[in-house]
Design a protein around this nucleic acid. Structure first.
Lengths: 105, 105
DNA sequence: TTCAATAGTCCCATACTTCCGAACTATTGA
DNA sequence: TCAATAGTTCGGAAGTATGGGACTATTGAA
């Protein structure tokens, strides 16, 4: 899946993670993804239906480049998952501590 | 001290806190402030000596408006403290979880 | 096969932020 | 009263985000 840029887990930075999650839309995307056991397509995880496709795509790119999610292509959809294990290995407890406080939904 | 804008603790938002801390310089400022028992002036907490005064001032404004620090004026200096109690009341465990991973220094 | 539909990405113009230097304010101390 | 110090505010240049439209890739149906 060389078409997507996924940083190695040791390259995930604290500032990068915080910057990625500091956008309420992206926080909601990550929360959606964690709520699902399975992968989700971009549109399925979209925080609001009226967001432009390009903007949504951009948010996913930011999350990917920050190392928060991994995207693989399956047919016409892209499957996204939170890189929970990598994140917990790099910054133990951080993701949980942040998402605990993300608004209910 | 009406000259500074300090949000009420219930107005502190998760996105605001994350955005404020997603800048490495501001993360270092907060880390410096927490390392001190006492208040610190802006320049004393400055993350690097060659940063423009206006930039530093702006970082402190962002931290203030996000509710991370409180600033009071004392003579020619401004005294800054982290609003630890407010933050812990609003988002228990968050500040600690983030700063635990901030680079050593 | 070809064609339409679907899911995302890429590109670009506009709008918003951030950074810094310079000018400004406020306080202190000589 | 004047110089020095600590920050703030302003304005322009550089960077970043947004969303519309064109583009690519895959699927499923005719």
């Amino acid at each position: 899946m060389a078409q997507f840029v996924h940083p190695a887990s040791q390259d995930i930075t604290l500032a990068g993670v915080l910057a990625a999650l500091s956008d309420p839309m992206r926080l909601r995307i990550v929360k959606s993804l964690l709520g699902q056991a399975d992968c989700m397509s971009c549109t399925a995880a979209a925080p609001c239906p009226d967001m432009a496709k390009s903007t949504l795509s951009n948010h996913f790119r930011v999350l990917r480049e920050a190392g928060l999610i991994r995207t693989t292509k399956k047919g016409v959809e892209h499957q996204n998952t939170v890189r929970e294990a990598d994140l917990n290995a790099r910054f133990p407890g951080l993701l949980k501590a942040i998402l605990k406080h993300a608004e209910e939904g």
